[in-house]
Design a protein around this nucleic acid. Structure first.
Lengths: 107, 107
DNA sequence: ATCATCGTTCGACACATGTCGTACTTTGCG
DNA sequence: CGCAAAGTACGACATGTGTCGAACGATGAT
């Protein structure tokens, strides 16, 4: 199995992070991972096909927002909250808070 | 002169705001307007053509991030910082801080 | 070994986006 | 009025993006 590559913290760009967060599906994924929850791809509960989900996870991973760990047949995804916070303090927490509120109120 | 339309605060979407902020040129524009500075389009100092600048300003305006006021032959643009903050507290300030830091350090 | 499951990769497709030049509108000035 | 300046609107173009299904690969169970 090929190693899964992740960018180092120093390489994260603000525009890149914001772009990764600017899609409703990806926002939903990030929301599902809030609170240091690690989930397999199938447990994310987003209503898109497997290939589309894989694409979005790659975008998030390439932007440095998530990390993926292979374990058997599963890929466990989690937020790189600490890394993002080290680079852009407060940003992820802020987005996360508003993403959760909006999702729960379905506005 | 046709009235310039701006969305009301309640209509701002998180994904929409993040998308508007996810372009380097628009991030630069927002940075130039930080601190309640009102500028005409030509004073923004972004290295794109007039039509491209107009397009970016429209994206920002439609996302609810800026407002435009016509005065004679000029259009004065400013941030809707208070409105955005009412809808997504902390978000704009956070992005602004990181946008400024990155721009000044040219990383 | 065979098979099912999980996820990635690959085309393909429609659509959005960033960019520009040109034409146009509005405004102010001579 | 005639002209220059500030922006906007439009058309065109290349590129990026979100979506899917089908094919593939890796892993674990039978």
């Amino acid at each position: 199995m090929r190693a899964i590559s992740h960018p180092v913290t120093e390489q994260l760009s603000l525009a890149g992070v914001l772009h990764a967060l600017s899609d409703p599906v990806r926002l939903e994924i990030v929301r599902a991972l809030a609170g240091d929850i690690e989930r397999s791809c199938g447990e994310l509960g987003v209503p898109v096909s497997k290939s589309t989900l894989s694409h979005h996870l790659k975008v998030l991973r390439d932007a440095g927002l998530t990390q993926t760990r292979a374990d058997g047949v599963h890929r466990f995804v989690s937020l790189r909250a600490a890394d993002v916070d080290a680079r852009f303090p407060g940003l992820l927490g802020c987005v996360l808070e508003h993403a959760s509120r909006r999702a729960s109120r379905r506005i």
